[in-house]
């Protein structure tokens, strides 16, 4: 994968140890350019460590990392924007000064940075607070300022660590739109989250890590296909009749009085085939629900036990 042009980020066998503690082990994945990429995992899974390695702030113990074609994000830092999980700004600087400073550190010249800062503040409804000191702003406003500071220099790759945490629902929506806009502009967005709805709505691909190891990498569909398909139906037909249907792996009775069942399909079996078979066999259905598995369920199924273990293992956060 080295040198490939269609990858914004590539991890190849990346590991990071602190003494005996292995924060991340043998992580391999690639973020395609122009995608929105979800970086999921429970607390203590090694997300922040991975992101810091991606940014070149800490060096991996093993493996290779490539960012925008460079072997270190430091080499292309002016094309990268980063929003860390824990946020803070200089309390005595104003939003305009803050955004200008962050953009200038990324190589923008002063006048352009200033123009861009004013534009962004205007667009995100903070124009009136452009020259108010950060310490006088609400937490949500300060967080918005920091997000704007992350993207002000027009980075090709935007890395957001838990960007939604701390934002109210309205501003979460604003941020989702911003991320979608960034993709529309051809930029790559990588964000970590443990709120599955955001990932579900936004991500083209995702990586799931647990206990420092890769648990899954691929598209949302591919993730869903890992889960047995579950169908909920309501019928007066006996349970045995359902069990005989083709492609049924198991039948569970949810509510006997009303005849509600949960059917797990065998690998490769299709919901439509089951529905057809019901008609053919004269099983009268009162309802038939074959909604797709939620990312939440996939997450729990893939990392559920690991998450509990990881918390016990690290006693909270790894570096």
């Amino acid at each position: 994968m080295t040198g490939s042009n269609d990858k914004a980020v590539a991890f190849e066998g990346v590991g990071k140890s602190y003494g005996d503690f292995r924060a991340v082990e043998d992580l391999t994945f690639a973020v395609p350019k122009g995608a929105i990429y979800g970086f999921l995992g429970p607390n203590g899974a090694g997300k922040t460590t991975s992101l810091r390695m991606m940014l070149g702030m800490i060096r991996p113990t093993t493996g290779m990392i490539e960012v925008l074609g460079s072997d270190s994000a430091m080499g292309v830092r002016e094309r990268v924007g980063y929003l860390p999980e824990e946020r803070g700004l200089y309390r005595r600087m104003t939003p305009v000064e803050t955004i200008v400073y962050l953009a200038r550190l990324k190589g923008m010249d002063g006048a352009a940075a200033r123009k861009r800062a004013l534009e962004l503040l205007e667009r995100f409804g903070l124009a009136a607070f452009g020259n108010t000191k950060i310490e006088a702003l609400s937490k949500g406003m300060a967080q918005k300022v920091q997000i704007l500071g992350t993207i002000a220099h027009g980075p090709d790759l935007v890395i957001l660590d838990e960007p939604f945490s701390g934002l109210d629902p309205v501003n979460q929506q604003v941020l989702e739109e911003l991320i979608a806009d960034l993709r529309a502009e051809g930029r790559t967005v990588l964000f970590s989250t443990h709120v599955m709805q955001h990932a579900e709505r936004l991500c083209d691909r995702l990586v799931l890590i647990a206990r420092g190891r890769l648990a899954f990498e691929g598209t949302l569909e591919a993730a869903r296909s890992l889960m047995p398909r579950v169908i909920r139906l309501k019928t007066r037909a006996p349970r045995a009749a359902l069990g005989d249907l083709p492609g049924v792996a198991s039948v569970a009775l949810e509510d006997e009085a009303h005849g509600r069942y949960e059917i797990k399909l065998a690998d490769g079996a299709e919901g439509e085939a089951l529905l057809r078979a019901c008609f053919e066999r004269g099983i009268a259905l009162e309802s038939f629900d074959m909604s797709e598995p939620a990312l939440h369920d996939i997450f729990v199924s893939l990392v559920g036990d690991g998450a509990r273990e990881a918390d016990a293992r690290t006693g909270g956060k790894a570096a």
Partner: peptide, 11 residues
């Protein structure tokens, strides 16, 4: 203490 350092060290 206000975690600014992380933003700065990405630049």
């Amino acid at each position: 203490s206000n975690k600014l350092i992380e933003v700065l060290l990405s630049s």
